[in-house]
Amino acid sequence: MSRPELQAPPEIYYGDTEAKKYTQNTRNQQIQADMTYRALELLNLTPDQPAFLLDVGCGSGLSGEILGEEGYIWAGVDIAPSMLEVALEREVEGDLFLQDIGQGFGFRPGSFDGVISISVLQWLLNAETSHPTSSPPHRLNRFFTTLHSAMRNPSRAVLQFYPTSDDQIQLITSIAQKAGFGGGVVVDYPNSKKARKVFLCLFVGGGGGQQVPQGLQGEEEDDSKVRFERRRERERAKVKTGKRKNVKDRDWILKKKELYRRRGKEGVPLDSKFTGRKRKPLF
């Protein structure tokens, strides 16, 4: 089957059925979680310092909820109402916006301490949205320019995406540079067909002194494990034991809250008639 971004505009492709399927698939949850941890690692935020992050193309919250679990406050934007609806059902913690990133952002200068985007940019390269739009370069330019000004100086944006060619990587990097970003592309497991991952690692400010990080080498299951690999394995184990349950039903939420309270966590939301409720359709 051809790539999703070649099949239909994103808000059509990720309709109700696909949004649920995408979110419930445990293999997919694991891949998106792995890439989110890696993106966080590449963001290189100051440890134990709170930060406000943006998740570009947050979808149903598979990437964003990890930001929340790691203690960050975040906002997310996505163009697909069905994906956002699943995010609401799962009660993710970020502020969500229905937005086409190709139209640019209105966030004030310096709003975000860091930005991640997991498996989204290829959509700007390929399928048009069903909203009338102009060319991919124009949309990419609008995206990167307004993203750049919305970020704090200094800070980083890490955007994992699926390019089909080196030309696409070239196009994206050159537009990002014109928008004022430093940085470049990090390729993890470049020689593995399966595990190869491309991260655009962009810098705002920092006096040009920032080095583009190294990609991970070898095969994914290799012995030569870097720091985050262990974390990744723990997470993977969590997925396997089913702790990271996909669509959060009311019982699951109540149980999780109960657990938090027992562990003495403060500020666990009170249970209410809204907990885990079905929401009315968006828009």
Binding site: V77, I79, L84, E85, L88, L96, F97, L98, Q99, D100, Q103, G106, H131, R279, K280, L282, F283
Partner: peptide, 9 residues
């Protein structure tokens, strides 16, 4: 709607 602003232009 449902807490989500529609920012589409």
């Amino acid at each position: 709607s449902n807490g989500i602003p529609n920012m589409l232009l």
